[in-house]
Write a protein that binds this DNA or RNA. Structure first.
Length: 783
DNA sequence: TAGTTTTAAGTTTTT
DNA sequence: CTTAAAACTA
C-alpha cells in the first residue's frame, strides 16, 4: 500500500515515485527541506521536480536555478532532467562556484571587478601570498592561504572581528588585508571570492538583487549539508519573498567540514526560512539490508545528528565481509583476488549475469593509498581507472602554459608573470622582477588606466635595465604579443564584454544570449572531428613554443621531457574545443579552474574497469561491489581525530559503506608502510562499532574479533598474545599468491621465529617463516 | 644568479 | 620512499 500512490491520473514519470518522493515533487508555496537518506532517490526527485515545474506548472525553464556540489553532478542532473522534458536543458544547473563566476562576469563591475578576470587556484593564491610574506617559510604561507580561504568560506572580511576564530595569529588580519588589496589590483579572484563577492554585490546594489530575484523564481540546492556559510548567505540574497526554495541533503553525509562546510546550514534551515516544510526520504533503494545495517550502526554513534531510520527496500542480501590482512600488499592482493574470482566465472550477480570489472570499486581514505592497488591490478592485467587523483592541471608544464595564457588575458596578473617571465632563464632575475612589479604598482596609484599593467611597466623600464635583462623582457613580451595575435579581434559577439553591466531597462543583459553558447555548439562536435591546430589550440601551441616553455622542459629533463610535451599537446587539444578569441580563452581558463573532472569523463564511458577512488570522491556514486580498504586507526579515522572531527570521519565511513549495492568488503591491515617504513597499526575503532551480526570476519583477526561469526581458536591462555601477533595455528586455511589454497600442517619454533609447514591443495608442501608478515598469502575463512 | 647537491619534511579529504 | 625546501658551489 505504501508502494504505489493512490493517484491514478498522474503521468508515468510521477506515478512511479513513492509517496514521499511524490510529495516532494508536487510541493509548492513554502520553503522545502528534503532530508534524503543515502540511496533514497534524491537526484530523481530533483530532476523530476525540475521537469514537473516546466511541464505541469508552466514554469519558464530559464527561471530555474539548480545548484549542485560538483560539475559532474550538475551534468548528470541536467541530462536526467532533459530525459523527462527536453526544455529542462534551459534551466541553469551549476555548482555554487560556477554560478558565482557566471554572476561576476556580468556584474563584477559593480564590485570594481573587470569581466576578464582569471580564477586563482590554491597554488596561485599561495604564490601571491608569498610575495606578501616575503621571508616566511613556505609551510607558513600555505597555512595562511588556507586561513584566508576558510575566512571567505565563513564570509569573514579582513575587518571582521570574528577573524581570530579562523587564525589566532596577530598578523593574520594584516596579511589578509594586503592579500585582498593585491588581488584587487591584479583584477583576479580566488575560489572564495566566487561566492563572497556576489553576496556583497547583491547586498550593495538592491536593484541588481531585485533583477536576480525576478529572474530565478525557483532555486534548488543539492547536497545542502556540505554548503558553507558564504553559500548560505548567497542563497539568502538570491531568495526573495516570491522565490520557491528547496534544499536537499543528509546531515549524515556531511563530510566537508574541514573545508568550511557548515552542517548547521541544514540543521537550522527551518529557522532561517520560516514556514519550512520538511519531507523525509527514508526508503533506501540501493543497498541490501545487511549493508545498510552495518553503515547505520557506525553513524548511529554520532551525537550531533537529526537521526533517521533508513529502510532497505531491497531486503536481505550477502553479509558484509571484514578481512584482517598482514599488510597493504596482501590487501591489494585480496582486492585483486576478489575481483578476479568474480569476473572470471566464480560468483555471479543475483540476476545471473557475470560480474563486470565496473561493478567493483576500491575505496581508500587518502590518494596516496591508490598506488599499491594500481601496481597490483596492473600486474594482474585488471583494467582500472583512478578517479580524482588526476592532477593534470597541476603539473608544472601545464601550469606554465596556463600562466602564459592568463598573462595574455590579464597583463596585471603578477602571479602568472612571475611564474614564466624567466622560464627559461632569460637573465631576468628576482631583482628585476621586483622592480617591474613595484613600477606597475606605482602606476596604479598615478593613473587608473595603466593600473598595475606589468607589460607596460616592463616596457617603460627597458632603458634602465641591463642589456641581458632588457633582451629577456623583450623576448618574453614579444612571445606574449605574438600569442595575442592568434586571437581574433573582439567582434560584436564579444558577449562577455557587452554583458559586463546590467542593462538599465531592468533586464539582465545577456539573458537571452548565453556567453557559453559559442562553445556549447562546438562541444557537441565529437573529439575526433577536432584536430589540433584548430580554434584556441593555435594560440596555446604558439605561446608555448615562442615563450620557450616547450623547449625549456624538453631540454631540462630528458626522460620526463617528452611526457611533458605530450601533456602540453593534450592541453592544446583541450583548447581546440574553444574559439580562438579572447572570450574563448577566458572560457577555457574558467573551465579549467572550475571543472577539472573533464579528463576523467572520457575514460568513464570507455572500458569496463575497476574504480579506484577516495572515500570523499564517492559521494553521489554507487557500485554493486565495494571494498573499503585501510580501515585502521591512524588511517581511517586519521590520527588523533576526536570530537567533531571524529564524527565527520564516521560520516565518511557511512558514505563509503552506503555506496555498495550488493556486496561490501572491509579490509584492515596489521602492518602498513608509512614514510617508507613498515609500522604496526591497530584496527580502526569503527570496526568495534559495527553491529557484529552484520559482519563476517576472515583472516588473522586480532583477538577481540576472533569470535562471533568466526570459528574461534581454543589456544592455551598464555598463547593469547602470541596469537594476536602471529595469528596462525594448525588447521588454518590460507591462500597463497603462487601456490593457491592450503592448510597449516605443523608449527614449530626456530631461531628466526615460528616456522609453519603448509600443505597446499596441489599436494605441494612448503615451509614458511614468520607467516604473519608475509605479503604472499593470507588467511581465509573456515566456511 | 643558475644550477647543483644536501637535508628535511610530509599524506587528508576538494569547489 | 618521494618530494620540496634550504644550502652550497661554479
Amino acid at each position: 500500500m505504501d508502494r504505489e500512490p493512490a493517484s491514478g491520473d498522474l503521468p508515468p514519470y510521477l506515478a512511479s515515485l513513492n509517496p514521499e518522493q511524490q510529495a516532494a515533487v508536487l510541493h509548492s508555496g513554502k520553503p522545502l527541506l528534503i532530508l534524503a537518506g543515502a540511496g533514497s532517490g534524491k537526484t530523481r526527485v530533483i530532476t523530476t521536480k525540475i521537469a514537473y515545474l516546466i511541464r505541469e506548472k508552466g514554469v519558464d525553464p530559464r527561471s530555474i536555478l539548480a545548484v549542485t556540489f560538483t560539475n559532474k553532478a550538475a551534468r548528470e542532473m541536467a541530462e536526467r532532467a532533459r530525459r523527462i522534458d527536453e526544455r529542462a536543458g534551459d534551466a541553469m544547473l551549476r555548482t555554487f562556484h560556477s554560478f558565482g563566476a557566471w554572476f561576476l562576469r556580468r556584474n563584477g563591475s559593480l564590485g570594481s571587478l573587470d569581466s576578464g578576470f582569471v580564477i586563482y587556484d590554491d597554488d596561485d593564491t599561495t604564490a601571491l601570498l608569498s610575495t606578501i610574506m616575503e621571508d616566511a617559510p613556505k609551510a607558513e604561507v600555505k597555512q595562511m592561504a588556507q586561513s584566508i580561504s576558510r575566512a571567505k568560506d565563513f564570509f569573514l572580511s579582513p575587518d571582521d572581528p570574528g577573524l581570530a576564530r579562523i587564525n589566532y595569529r596577530e598578523e593574520f588580519r594584516a596579511v589578509y588585508t594586503q592579500y585582498e588589496e593585491r588581488l584587487r589590483r591584479i583584477g583576479n579572484v580566488d575560489f572564495g571570492d566566487l561566492i563572497k563577492k556576489p553576496v556583497e554585490i547583491l547586498r550593495g546594489f538592491p536593484d541588481a538583487a531585485r533583477r536576480f530575484r525576478d529572474r530565478f523564481r525557483v532555486i534548488l540546492v543539492d547536497e545542502y549539508q556540505d554548503s558553507n556559510i558564504a553559500q548560505f548567505e548567497l542563497l539568502k540574497e538570491l531568495c526573495g519573498s516570491e522565490t520557491y526554495v528547496c534544499v536537499v541533503g543528509d546531515d549524515d553525509q556531511s563530510i566537508y567540514r574541514f573545508r568550511g562546510a557548515e552542517v548547521r546550514n541544514i540543521l537550522e534551515f527551518p529557522d532561517r526560512f520560516p514556514g519550512t516544510d520538511i519531507i523525509r526520504l527514508e526508503r533506501n533503494y540501493r543497498s541490501t539490508a545487511p549493508i545498510l545495517a552495518l553503515a547505520s550502526s557506525v553513524v548511529d554513534r554520532n551525537k550531533d545528528r537529526l537521526g533517521k531510520t533508513l529502510r532497505a527496500e531491497r531486503g536481505n542480501g550477502k553479509t558484509p565481509v571484514l578481512a584482517f590482512l598482514p599488510d597493504q600488499d596482501a590487501e591489494a592482493a585480496f582486492c585483486a583476488e576478489l575481483i578476479e574470482n568474480s569476473a572470471r566465472s566464480g560468483t555471479k550477480r543475483e540476476n545471473g549475469v557475470r560480474a563486470a570489472y565496473s561493478d567493483w570499486a576500491i575505496l581508500y581514505r587518502t590518494n596516496a593509498q591508490s598506488l599499491g592497488f594500481e601496481t597490483e591490478l596492473l600486474r594482474r592485467k585488471i583494467p582500472y581507472r583512478v578517479v580524482g587523483s588526476l592532477k593534470f592541471y597541476e603539473r608544472e608544464e601545464v601550469k606554465d602554459a596556463l600562466a602564459l595564457l592568463s598573462f595574455l588575458i590579464n597583463p596585471r596578473d603578477e602571479v602568472a608573470f612571475r611564474r614564466v617571465v624567466n622560464k627559461p632563464a632569460r637573465g631576468v632575475g628576482a631583482a628585476t622582477v621586483d622592480r617591474i612589479a613595484r613600477a606597475a604598482a606605482a602606476f596604479s596609484e598615478e593613473s587608473a588606466q595603466a593600473g598595475g599593467d606589468l607589460s607596460t611597466a616592463a616596457r617603460a623600464l627597458l632603458p634602465e635595465l641591463s642589456a641581458k635583462a632588457g633582451a629577456g623582457i623583450t623576448a618574453f613580451l614579444g612571445a606574449i604579443a605574438a600569442g595575442a595575435l592568434t586571437l581574433n579581434v573582439d567582434k560584436p559577439d564579444d558577449i562577455v564584454a557587452s554583458n559586463g553591466v546590467i542593462a538599465s531597462n531592468g533586464v539582465i543583459a545577456g539573458n537571452d544570449v548565453e556567453p557559453r553558447n559559442v562553445s556549447k555548439r562546438q562541444r557537441t562536435k565529437s573529439r575526433e572531428e577536432l584536430r589540433a591546430g584548430e580554434g584556441l589550440s593555435v594560440c596555446v601551441v604558439k605561446l608555448v613554443q615562442d615563450a620557450g616553455i616547450a623547449g625549456y622542459h624538453l631540454a631540462h629533463d630528458e626522460i620526463a621531457g617528452n611526457q611533458r610535451i605530450a601533456n602540453l599537446q593534450e592541453l592544446a587539444n583541450a583548447a581546440s574545443l574553444y574559439p580562438a578569441s579572447r572570450e574563448g580563452l577566458l572560457e577555457f581558463l574558467e573551465h579549467i579552474e572550475l571543472d577539472r573532472s573533464a579528463e576523467e569523463e572520457r575514460k568513464e564511458n570507455s572500458e569496463d574497469s575497476v574504480t579506484l577512488i577516495t572515500l570523499h570522491n564517492t559521494k553521489g556514486l554507487e557500485f554493486r561491489r565495494v571494498i573499503m580498504t585501510g580501515i585502521e586507526q591512524g588511517v581511517f579515522p586519521r590520527d588523533d581525530k576526536k570530537g567533531d572531527d571524529l564524527e565527520e570521519e564516521r560520516r565518511l565511513f557511512y558514505v563509503g559503506a552506503t555506496r555498495a549495492m550488493d556486496e561490501l568488503y572491509l579490509s584492515s591491515c596489521a602492518m602498513r608502510r608509512m614514510f617508507g617504513r613498515t609500522m604496526p597499526v591497530e584496527p580502526s575503532i569503527f570496526l568495534r562499532e559495527i553491529d557484529r551480526a552484520s559482519l563476517r570476519v576472515i583472516g588473522s583477526a586480532p583477538y577481540e574479533f576472533a569470535s562471533a561469526n568466526r570459528v574461534s581458536r581454543s589456544g592455551k591462555a598464555g598463547a593469547l598474545e602470541k596469537k594476536s601477533e602471529e595469528g596462525w595455528q594448525v588447521g588454518d586455511r590460507l591462500f597463497h599468491d603462487d601456490y593457491g589454497y592450503g592448510g597449516v600442517a605443523e608449527i614449530r619454533e626456530s631461531e628466526e621465529g615460528p616456522v609453519v609447514r603448509v600443505r597446499f591443495e596441489t599436494g605441494k608442501e612448503l615451509h614458511f617463516l614468520s607467516l604473519h608478515q608475509s605479503s604472499r598469502f593470507m588467511k581465509v575463512g573456515d566456511d
